[in-house]
Design a protein around this nucleic acid. Structure first.
Length: 291
DNA sequence: CCCCCTGCCTGCGGGC
DNA sequence: TGCCCGCAGGCAGGGG
């Protein structure tokens, strides 16, 4: 599923092909892929054709490519099953192809950026860039917090925010307005690594436990990125259609009933926010470990 | 502000 | 074999 590492793999894959490329044509096959672009398909197309991409950027699970008008960007959110694929300009349609953006790159020549999405939770848009401190972000990204791999992420402010929250720590990790880029998989993996029960009240975590958790979040995300992300099925692939390899390194997520690799006890699966939490009830206690 | 809930979608696999 | 249903889950928006 596309969380921070997967979106970053896609961003990095688009970068060499997209930056400096001119948009030669845009085809919208399914308007549901433009739910984030309120003015509709014809406006979307008009704002892209003839423009060039000047960069690629990402915050949390949002990625965007600024345009050469200097004031707008193509933004993409992959939802659960969105894919951004680089294809030959005449490549046959993908199974769930929603949008195709033809580009001409000064070095790589003609290419197509294909947005395919089985469950249509993802979408594209052209959005205005607005100031956000020293940087500029699309308006739709303004409310998204910096992610834990961002140098400007404020650990102290995060800890202070946790101390004011009584929600379960896992729920807080999934709140993109507080810390972005973490989804169900990496929340479970980080909590397992930090030995924190997902239902622990955020305000019950010691300063030490918060630091441990942040360190594990960063380790998990960094390792997953190095492995090209987590792929369970065909839903997550990079821009060349290849799966990532981090699934083989998961310690908790998807391992219900299998032995915890730390203590040997069985990993438990529990319903959580209309999905599941995977954790080790023996080494992840509701009370944070006193260390 | 904080918290909680719902709607948005499709494909797959298990159960009968 | 074929049907039904549960499940996967990020995010926006609205109500309390």
């Amino acid at each position: 599923m596309p969380e921070l590492p997967e979106v970053e793999v896609v961003r990095a894959g688009l970068e060499p092909a997209a930056v400096g490329a001119v948009i030669t044509g845009v085809s919208v096959f399914d308007e549901r892929a433009l739910t984030r672009h309120v003015p509709g398909a014809s406006d979307f197309v008009a704002r892209l054709e003839g423009r060039s991409f000047t960069a690629t950027s990402r915050r949390g699970k949002f990625l965007w490519l600024p345009l050469d008008d200097g004031d707008s960007a193509l933004i993409a959110h992959l939802g659960m099953s969105g894919q951004m694929l680089l294809r030959a300009p005449d490549a046959t349609a993908e199974r769930h192809e929603r949008v195709r953006i033809g580009i001409e790159h000064p070095v790589h020549g003609e290419l197509a950026i294909v947005f395919a999405d089985q469950r249509t939770f993802g979408s594209l848009a052209v959005d205005a860039l607005v100031a956000d401190g020293p940087s500029r972000v699309p308006t739709q990204v303004r409310h998204i917090a910096r992610d834990p791999l961002d140098a400007a992420f404020d650990d102290r402010a995060f800890r202070a925010a946790l101390s004011r929250r009584r929600s379960a720590i896992k729920r807080v990790l999934l709140d993109q307005s507080l810390i972005s880029g973490i989804g169900n998989i990496y929340a479970d993996e980080s909590l397992w690594a930090a030995r924190i029960h997902p239902e622990t009240s955020a305000d019950a975590l010691s300063t030490r436990a918060v630091h441990r958790l942040l360190a594990e979040v960063r380790l998990v995300l960094t390792r997953a990125l190095a492995e090209g992300g987590t792929s369970f099925d065909a839903q997550y692939v990079n821009v060349n259609g290849q799966a990532g390899y981090f699934a083989r390194h998961l310690h908790a997520y998807g391992r219900a009933g299998q032995p915890c690799e730390r203590c040997g006890g069985p990993i438990r699966r529990e319903p959580f926010m209309n999905r599941s939490s995977f954790f080790c009830p023996r080494c992840q206690r509701v009370k944070p470990a006193a260390d």
